[in-house]
Write a protein that binds this DNA or RNA. Structure first.
Length: 414
RNA sequence: GGAAGGGUGGCCGAGUGGUUGAUGGCACCGGUCUUGAAAACCGGCAAGUUAAUAGCUUCGCAGGUUCGAAUCCUGUCCCUUCCGCCA
């Protein structure tokens, strides 16, 4: 969430930025509620002060009836005001949760179609192989039995594709650890505080894309970003420890409701997939630089695997609430003759960190909210789609990119 | 799942109704001493809110009792040990 004082001092900026992102938030209402909160807080605090003074006068001796009566009166007054205050605070917090992060100045305005290509790499292939037909025919992919067991858009990977997934993970791990990321596995469920603190829609929202556990305050994670953000919740980290770079590997679960009209064939959009995610906690002044570094690592991965791609700067209207700026890497799909999303990396500045109370203690002792960033290292299911489209021969073998060959005992094709 | 015990400041650990936001120790910072360091001694040292070194809040969390709660009651979460179950 944003800092209420920041909102107060930059009202028009917040309104403009929210509007660009497509959020309708009434900042004036929010500030008026905060005014009410402050006034009531002062009342409550002066009552508490009186209460403490009265109680202090009584200790030791036997209190006079007058003093006790005074104390009782204060207590009753507080009993009326305090619930009022907490209800306003709750309401204010709910409203604050609705305000999305401020976008950076270099984020293109407009909807999805306004995202800007900032670079591209590789030679687009003219023709490709449909991954679903190819992998199913080779007995590597079974959506039918996935559906039988768990419903539509669940699947089994077998033999070649299952081995390929493992090889891709090993390669991704090698890349991220080379860049100083600490590999970790994470809980595949998180509590609602983590989920909402990361900026995802709460359970009550119709737009929620998460699976929830009935009777528990738990959701299946949609990305390792969730447990990685929560890792340092309520902590104050010494400046010299930063940046903290983690690479979390997890299953990811998504309902994918409301994805009609988007490309959903085969493994491209499924309810469960595995992903290696990079995550960084850093100093506020370092986050822009770090964002570029994460993007470079992602590009390095696709270049080494040899998949043509472009990098786009995501337009404001297509940014989620937490991101101040986001890059997507889209690979060239020779099958669909268009670019399709493969990875993304976001600079969430202090938005998630403020919600989850993650701070840095500076060398001079001062404390402030730090910045968080996330980026996909490898999203396995989609990567396998891109790989088959680019590397399979129709009715033939799947060539193995050279960087993956070590994980197949040096074999050059499957 | 059953039983018992426990959650206090960066760490350890006192504290069972009234200057205890919290004794003490460790760690850390500053000083004296020393050629330097160590030791010893002196001083400082939680967070949030706030314009504030005023006040208020915080002893896992949430309620309750009371003029007053770290301390009593209820619920809840987590941890430890034992039993059961189990990869």
């Amino acid at each position: 969430m944003l800092d209420i004082n920041f909102i107060r001092n930059h009202q028009s900026l917040v309104e403009k930025s929210s509007h660009e992102k497509g959020y309708s938030v009434n900042i004036s209402d929010l500030l008026m509620l905060d005014d009410r909160r402050k006034a009531l807080l002062q009342t409550v605090e002066s009552l508490r002060r009186e209460r403490n003074e009265v109680a202090g006068q009584m200790k030791g001796g036997k209190p006079s009836p007058e003093l006790i009566a005074k104390g009782k009166a204060i207590k009753e007054e507080l009993a009326k005001k305090e619930p009022e205050l907490s209800s306003i605070e709750q309401e204010l917090s709910d409203m604050l949760q609705q305000v999305p992060n401020i976008i950076f100045e270099d984020v293109p305005l407009g909807g999805e179609e306004c995202s800007v290509e900032i670079s591209n790499w590789g030679k687009k292939r003219e023709v490709g192989v449909d991954h679903l037909d190819y992998a199913t025919q080779r007995g590597w992919l079974d959506f039918e039995r996935g559906a039988k067991v768990a419903g539509a858009k669940f699947y089994y990977l077998k033999d070649g594709l299952a081995l390929l997934e493992n090889a891709l993970l090993q390669f991704g791990l090698k890349k991220v650890t080379e860049h100083g990321f600490h590999y970790m596995t994470v809980p595949d469920m998180v509590s609602s505080r983590i989920l909402e603190g990361c900026g995802f829609n709460p359970r009550s929202s119709k737009q929620s894309d998460e699976y929830y556990i009935e009777g528990e305050d738990l959701a299946m994670i949609a990305t390792a970003e969730m447990p990685l953000t929560g890792y340092h919740m309520d902590e104050i980290i010494d400046e010299k420890e930063l940046p903290l770079c983690y690479a979390g590997y997890s299953a990811c679960f998504r309902k994918e409701a409301g994805t009609y009209g988007k490309y959903t064939r085969g493994l491209f959009r499924v309810h469960q997939f595995n992903k290696l995610e990079m995550y960084v906690f850093c100093l506020p002044e370092d986050s822009k630089k770090t964002h570029e570094q994460i993007r470079e690592i992602e590009e390095e991965i696709w270049q080494e695997i040899g998949i043509p791609y472009r990098v786009i700067n995501i337009a404001a209207g297509d940014l989620g609430a937490p991101a101040a700026k986001k890059y997507d890497i889209e690979y060239w799909s020779p099958v669909n003759q268009k670019y399709q999303e493969l990875t993304s990396c976001s600079n969430c500045t202090d938005f998630q960190a403020r919600s989850l109370n993650i701070r840095v203690r500076r060398e001079n002792g001062s404390i402030e909210t730090l910045h968080t960033l996330n980026g996909t290292a490898i999203s396995l299911a989609r990567t396998m789609v891109a790989l088959i489209e680019n590397y399979a021969e129709p009715e033939g073998k799947l060539k193995i990119p050279s960087v993956l060959q070590p994980y197949f005992g040096g074999a050059t094709e499957l």
